[in-house]
């Protein structure tokens, strides 16, 4: 039996009015992969995530999620997404951790379970804005986990987080990847740190490294295989 890639991008071309950001990008993420997506500011990491999530539509190329073309994809419970700077926009509103969790359809039990998997259960009735950046991050991860997703997508989750918290964060990611068999796609600036954590790195900096020679073996070989078919 052939399991389709969790994410499959073929020849993606995308530009804003200011010019092209992605120029013929290919990428496959397989089940169980832990993929790091790196690149300097403005190389199109967030843009690529938005294309994967169907928020933006590429001018050219195909996006498939779990083997289904993005236009027809309905199974959003399979995907958890944690946007860049997730917590910052709500600092002016007194919303509790529990209320953040309730944005997803979930029972009391599921909420508690997700919060304890990120060690945040004891903060359930705290205000989100009274938590530290790293703790807020965990809450948003918990909210994504409540759906029991198969794929977790995180946009720069460790920005502005101290080394200790960062270590704990990657521990959590390893746990999710190993114990819960989650496929992870993680955006980061920090090639050095991330390369010790992930299975493979996709460098999104076309000015330095073309897509074809990126260091992500799984993507690379798979891309070659796809050419054979």
């Amino acid at each position: 039996m052939n399991i389709p890639p969790v994410i499959s991008l073929k020849n993606i071309v995308f530009g804003y009015r200011s010019g092209n950001v992605l120029d013929g990008l290919n990428m496959d993420v397989l089940k169980g992969d832990f993929v790091g997506l790196v690149g300097h500011n403005g190389t199109g990491k967030s843009t690529l995530l938005k294309i994967i999530l169907g928020v933006l539509t590429p001018q050219n190329g195909t996006v498939k999620l779990f083997g289904t073309p993005i236009k027809k994809f309905k199974d959003w419970d399979k995907i958890g997404y944690i946007p860049q700077k997730a917590g910052l926009s709500v600092s002016h509103v007194p919303i509790t951790v529990d209320e953040v969790m309730r944005m997803e359809k979930a029972s009391d039990y599921e909420v508690d379970e997700a919060l304890s998997s990120v060690d945040m259960l004891s903060y359930k009735h705290q205000l989100l804005r009274e938590l530290s950046g790293g703790q807020q991050q965990r809450v948003f991860i918990a909210r994504a986990l409540v759906k029991n997703p198969e794929l977790l997508i995180l946009d720069e989750p460790t920005v502005g987080v101290d080394v200790k918290t960062q270590e704990k964060f990657y521990e959590l990611m390893q746990k999710l990847n190993h114990d819960f068999h989650l496929t992870l796609l993680l955006v980061s600036h920090d090639l050095h740190t991330i390369s010790h954590q992930v299975h493979c790195v996709m460098q999104l900096d076309k000015k330095t490294i073309p897509y074809e020679t990126n260091t992500c073996n799984i993507i690379h070989t798979h891309h070659k295989n796809a050419d054979h078919n």
Partner: peptide, 18 residues
């Protein structure tokens, strides 16, 4: 209520929540 909450607080995650 839930849809309004999610969309108001976090439009992108709401979208990926279907």
């Amino acid at each position: 209520y839930r849809q309004f909450m999610y969309t108001s607080f976090d439009e992108e995650s709401a979208r990926t929540s279907g």
